[in-house]
């Protein structure tokens, strides 16, 4: 088996002043694959994503191992981290309405990633940005380059976001609910663009989501998180054969087109799910 991109062992995160840990002993490894992290709000899935980039102000992060390539992330200086973020690991945020700077031109924001990590002229960064905008299937890159975020649609904004985060050709991209702010009609389009770029470039992907079907279709493996812990890990195609009662509960609570009109099942949370396994 090839060497994993990311190894996480016993990751624990506590927000400043909180009495309980938001993430309690999460472990997983990631190769050149697409890993889904699924869980309800507050389960700690986004916190894990941000901890990998060490962008959790005020939180305490500990782990036995947090290895990214040849780097041990937790012992890295902030200065070294600046060379990791954007260049080797990046993150696609949820809602382009808020995640793009409202008063800077879209293209400049994309090109900034390149400018930050490579010695090059502004013209060169512009060319790179234009090429990347084209790669995310924006039809008229020259025009969009000079537009401001409020002038483009949500779907286009999210494609701009993808362009920005893939421009420096990272090894790992974390997509934090990349489509939950989008219309259903453009969701699939954006996901397909992300999917094909990630596959073509051999980029590892962590897809954080609460949408089981999305993860089933776009990921190889799935981690199910509950209350800051991974309760189950399984291949996406085996999702229907999940063992853990929480996962089974989530699956049972999904509506199905053409299914029975009976009320949907409601999760019956068991206190023992909260306990950490020895």
């Amino acid at each position: 088996m090839e060497k994993p991109i990311l190894e996480v062992d016993n990751l624990r995160i506590r927000y400043g002043g909180a009495s309980v840990e938001a993430v309690r002993g999460v472990s997983f490894t990631l190769g050149r694959e697409r890993l889904g992290i699924v869980g309800e709000s507050g389960s700690g899935k986004s916190t894990v994503g941000r901890a990998l980039l060490r962008l959790l102000p005020g939180a305490t992060i500990t782990a036995d191992t947090l290895r990214f390539g040849e780097l041990e992330l937790l012992t890295l200086s902030e200065k070294a981290m600046l060379k990791v973020r954007g260049r080797r690991m990046s993150m696609i945020l949820q809602d382009p309405k808020f995640s793009l700077n409202p008063i800077r031109r879209v293209g400049d924001q994309v090109g900034e990633t390149y400018l930050r990590h490579f010695r090059c002229s502004k013209a060169e960064a512009r060319d790179k940005a234009l090429a990347m905008l084209e790669a995310v299937k924006i039809r008229d890159p020259e025009r969009v380059y000079d537009q401001y975020p409020h002038e483009i649609s949500g779907g286009m904004g999210q494609r701009v976001m993808i362009a920005m985060m893939l421009l420096a050709d990272p090894d790992l991209v974390i997509a934090d609910e990349p489509t939950s702010a989008l219309d259903v009609t453009v969701r699939l389009q954006v996901l397909n663009i992300l999917d094909s770029l990630v596959r073509d470039r051999g980029i590892g992907l962590i897809m954080i989501s609460h949408d089981l079907n999305l993860v089933r279709n776009f990921c190889d493996r799935v981690l199910i998180m509950y209350a800051g812990r991974v309760v189950e890990t399984l291949a996406a195609r085996d999702l229907d054969r999940a063992q853990h009662p929480y996962t089974r509960g989530l699956l049972a609570a999904q509506p199905r087109i053409g299914g029975a009109r009976a009320p949907l099942a409601v999760l019956d949370r068991q206190p023992e799910w909260l306990e950490e396994k020895a």
């Binding site: 980039l53 945020l93 990633t113 976001m161 920005m164």
Partner: peptide, 14 residues
């Protein structure tokens, strides 16, 4: 507190 600040940090800006 805005999200675009996080975006900038993710891109690798100090």
């Amino acid at each position: 507190g805005q999200e675009y600040v996080t975006t900038a940090r993710v891109k690798g800006l100090s």
